Simulated scan of single mutants.
Amino acid sequence: MSIQDDAPLLAVMGHFGLSEDALLGIGGEACVFALGKDRIARVHHPGTARGAVDLRARLLEDLRRSASAVPFSIPSVLEITERHGRFITIEPRLPGRPLLRVLAEVTGAERDDLVTRFLEASTRLCALRLDHEGYGDLCEAEPIRASSHRAYLERRARKSLASAGDAFAGVDPSRLAAALPEPARPSFVHMDLFPGNVLVEDQEVSAVVDFGGPSALADARLEPLSAVAYLTPFITPTATDRDRRLAREWLQAQHLDALLAPAERWLAARWSFARDDVRLHQWCREVLLERTEHG
Results as ranks from 00 to 15, higher is better:
Gly212Met: 04
Gly213Ile: 07
Arg101Trp: 00
Asp276Ser: 13
Ala109Glu: 15
Leu259Met: 12
His132Leu: 01
Pro262Asp: 03
Ser66Cys: 07
Pro46Met: 03
Glu61Leu: 07
Thr240Asp: 00
Leu259Cys: 08
Asp112Thr: 08
Ser160Gln: 08
Ala263Glu: 04
Arg124Tyr: 06
Thr116Leu: 15
Ile3Gln: 03
Gln4Phe: 07
Arg129Pro: 03
Leu288Phe: 04
Val200Leu: 04
Gly28Leu: 15
Arg270Ile: 11
Asp172Leu: 04
His190Phe: 05
His281Ser: 07
Asp276Leu: 13
Leu59Gly: 05
Asp276Lys: 14
Arg245Ala: 10
Val77Gly: 00
Gly213Gln: 14
Gly196Tyr: 03
Ser76Phe: 11
Leu231Gln: 07
Ala263Phe: 06
Phe33Cys: 06
Gly165Asn: 10
Arg39Asn: 09
Ile90Met: 10
Leu130Asn: 08
Ile88Trp: 11
Ala34His: 01
Glu82Cys: 06
Arg275Asn: 09
Asp6Leu: 08
Arg155Thr: 06
Glu140Gln: 09
Ala258Met: 15
Ala269Asn: 09
Ala22Val: 04
Pro92Ser: 05
Arg111Leu: 12
Ile144Tyr: 03
Arg158Gly: 05
Cys284Thr: 02
Pro71Trp: 15
Ala109Asn: 01
Arg245Trp: 11
Leu23Ala: 09
Gly96Asn: 05
Ala216Glu: 01
Glu249Met: 08
Gly212Cys: 02
Ala121Asp: 00
Leu267Arg: 12
Leu260Thr: 00
Leu180Ala: 15
Glu91Trp: 03
Leu18Gln: 06
Glu293Thr: 04
Ala57Leu: 14
Thr116Asn: 02
Ile80Cys: 14
Ala227Ile: 13
Ser2Cys: 01
Arg39Gly: 02
Leu10Arg: 08
Asp38Glu: 14
Ile80Tyr: 11
Asp54Phe: 03
Ala104Met: 09
Ala30Trp: 02
Val287Ser: 07
Leu18Thr: 03
Ser215Gly: 10
Ala184Gly: 12
Arg86Val: 10
Ser187Thr: 02
Gly170Asp: 08
Asp5Ile: 02
Leu260Ser: 03
Gly96Gln: 10
Glu91His: 06
Cys126Tyr: 05
Val43Phe: 01
Phe16Arg: 05
Asp62Gly: 06
Cys31Asn: 14
Gly136Ser: 06
Leu222Cys: 09
Leu289His: 03
Arg291Leu: 12
Arg58Thr: 12
Ala247Gln: 08
Pro262Tyr: 11
Gln282Trp: 09
Arg279Cys: 07
Gly47Asp: 15
Arg221His: 12
Ala162Leu: 12
Leu94Cys: 01
Glu182Tyr: 11
Ala268Lys: 07
Leu9His: 01
Ala164Phe: 09
Phe16Lys: 00
Leu260Ala: 04
Val102Phe: 02
Leu280Gln: 10
Gly196Met: 10
Ala11Gln: 15
Arg175Tyr: 02
Thr238Gly: 10
